[in-house]
Design a protein around this nucleic acid. Sequence first.
RNA 1: CGGGGUGUAGCUCAGUAUGGUUAGAGUACCUGGUUUGGGACCAGGGGGCCGAAGGUUCGAGUCCUUUCACCCCGACCA
Length: 434
Amino acid sequence: MRRSRAFIPTAKEAPNDATLPSHQFLIRAGFINQQGAGLYNFMPLGKIVLEKIRAIVKEELDSAGCNEVQLSFVTPIGLWDRSGRAETMGKEMLRIKDRHENDFVLSPTNEEAMVELVKNRVTSYKDLPLNLYQINTKFRDEARPRYGLLRGREFLMKDGYSFHASTEDMVREFDLMEVTYKKIFTRLGLDFRVVEADSGAIGGEGSKEFHVLADSGEDTIVVCEACDYGANIETIFDNEQEIDSLNEKSYEELQTQKLSEKCTCGGELSFKKGIEVGHIFQLGDKYSSALEATFSDENGKPKPFEMATFGIGVSRLVAAVIEQNHDENGCIWTKETAPYTVNIMVSNIKDEEQVTLGEELYLKLLGENIEVMFDDRKERFGFKMKDAELIGFPYTVIIGKELANGHVQVYDRKTKEKTEVKIGDIFEKIMELI
RNA sequence: CGGGGUGUAGCUCAGUAUGGUUAGAGUACCUGGUUUGGGACCAGGGGGCCGAAGGUUCGAGUCCUUUCACCCCGACCA
């Protein structure tokens, strides 16, 4: 993409209602803009990142044997009446009427719809297990949306549901999804922890949350410094006052506090703040029983499906990556999430030699299918550098005054280091870096 | 849902206590010139129903009423 043709409205100042780094930078760098409370538009850069994360989630799930589907976003209220959630979910479900005055709901989650989809279509134990998922818009009319993409009302979420003939098989799938989720978050370049969680109101036995470690996280978790053990504080303290007081503490305050107990592995336990980006549940037959979704077992007897459910906050991940990877100048995208891997910057657009080399390199990288931005705007060096740092391209090739000595520079966004590279070696250097 | 706050140019904000020429600044944008390695400089220019509706008044951004939107703290919540 040529920068001169791109729609990337960057700004020096963030709107005053953005408080967190991810929120401020994503708006300032032109990734998203706010449409209303908890509602966001994705502009070209934001859309690219969102699609990249979505693609990684899909790839890993598909290779773990899951089936992607897409359920309707608008669902009839009757579906929710049958499970009782029309009542229990209350105002969080946004209700609408069609022209015939019939009631509908903008789906906040899809247990009911997925059970209905499978019911009477999967009728034998021989067809099990089955794991279905979708990556689709959700709407939850939160009492207080906040922090940009971290807690929106409308958001993109991957929700998966598995169906099994036995609890053992459901637990096997649950464990497989834990492994798969770890692969996904590792590929995204995130520092995360899997923590044991309370299953809460949704019911069922096992429940694990995946937290991206970030100072601004809303959740407080306990992690082992030696092994990969982690737990939500709700599972290790029973005293509610203690839990509340821990949740109120800031990241700095928590750092000074140590746990007296040690991990089973012998390592020190400490507190961290986390952003929940994934959650897996062992559901059991709660929904299949309620909706009378059964299969025939080996003896020909009807049994409700054993189920598990798996969620990933896809749009929340866009913000979580930045919450964990940024500095005072802007975004620092990880390798797999960067909207463009390489940014070619021509320092002085009036210098024909610089422009020619820039064009040449740009076309060559395009030919190699490298995601490359070519900053061909008529702006000064400082302006374009600040812009590149704000957006957060992992690498910027600076074609500028060093050209006289036969060099260009490669600027590494993360380390902030500039490396001199001979013109003849630049292509190989880029291929080596990415 | 309880408490607090804010709506004036694309963005950040003055102006509102005490009503009074044609509503301001910075930034962004357009034109011309100078500049060209860290968000440049000079000159000129465009951009506003002062969130909306109603009221008081000779006169309302400013006072009154209603309403809408957004933000923050809390409760709630994946």
